[in-house]
Simulated scan of single mutants.
Amino acid sequence: MNKLSICAAIVMSTLIAQPVLAADASKAEKQAQVRKMCDEALATLYKAKPEARKQVESSAGYGCFSSFGISFLIGGAGGSGLVHDNKAKHDTFMNMGQASAGVDIGIKDYREVLVFLDKATLDKFINSGWEFSGGAQATAKAGSTGATAETAAAGGKREEAKQDRITIYPMTKTGLAVGAAAAGRKYWKSDDLN
């Protein structure tokens, strides 16, 4: 997929996702909606993979993102989330855009929890924004065995994984996701919610 297609998919998906946070809602109401989504995403993760709670609590911080999108082989999604700094006890609200390519057809409500394994990666994610290419997907197992997640790096470059360490847990509202199309994701601070 070329860069123009990725940009078009992200723009389209961001426009589609706008109703998720209603235009007439106040800043505080929108922040409360994002915090509620994050609490639900963490509860879903802990139910499916109880040992993830210790990882999240002992990490530099975590992020929760929710997106909604439409795909027919090529598609996209847009959404919002927050990143929580465990030491500072501070939330930073962020936006997310995603473009996908692959055998992926349908309308999806997608959530993910990102666990930042060190403070430098957390700060870089918040202050510089972030971009993952298709190689940075995490995987999950179905059933009672829980999930596996991989450490990912910006741009999906494996040589950077030692420096930019994030564990990603993809999920739907009801549980951990099993497989996904290759996706390019971009994250940036929300001007409206911070």
Score class of each variant (00 low, 15 high):
N2Q: 07
K3A: 01
K3F: 10
S5Y: 10
C7F: 06
C7I: 07
A8M: 06
A9S: 03
L15T: 11
L15V: 12
I16K: 06
I16Y: 14
A17M: 10
A17P: 05
Q18D: 02
Q18E: 04
A23M: 15
A23I: 08
A28S: 14
E29Q: 07
K30W: 15
Q31W: 03
R35S: 06
K36N: 04
M37F: 08
E40A: 13
T44P: 08
L45P: 00
L45I: 01
Y46Q: 13
K47V: 09
K47F: 15
P50V: 13
P50S: 10
A52T: 03
K54C: 03
V56Y: 14
A60T: 11
A60L: 11
A60S: 07
G61A: 11
Y62R: 00
G63E: 14
C64E: 14
F72A: 05
I74E: 04
G75T: 06
G76N: 00
G78I: 05
L82R: 08
L82E: 01
V83F: 00
N86F: 01
A88L: 14
H90G: 10
F93C: 12
N95T: 04
M96L: 05
M96S: 05
Q98A: 15
A99P: 08
S100F: 12
S100Q: 13
S100P: 09
G102I: 02
D104K: 08
D104H: 12
I105M: 01
G106Y: 02
K108H: 11
R111S: 08
V113H: 11
V113I: 03
L114Q: 15
V115A: 07
L117F: 07
D118P: 10
D118N: 13
D123W: 12
F125V: 05
S128V: 04
W130R: 02
G134S: 01
G135I: 00
A140N: 02
S144A: 05
T145Y: 09
T148K: 13
T151V: 07
A154D: 15
A154Y: 15
G156W: 13
K157S: 10
K157W: 14
E159Y: 12
E160P: 15
A161P: 08
Q163M: 07
I166A: 00
I168T: 06
I168R: 08
P170A: 10
P170G: 14
M171E: 11
T172V: 01
K173Q: 00
K173D: 04
G175R: 01
L176H: 13
L176A: 15
A177N: 00
A177C: 02
A180C: 07
A183M: 06
A183V: 09
R185I: 10
R185E: 12
W188Y: 11
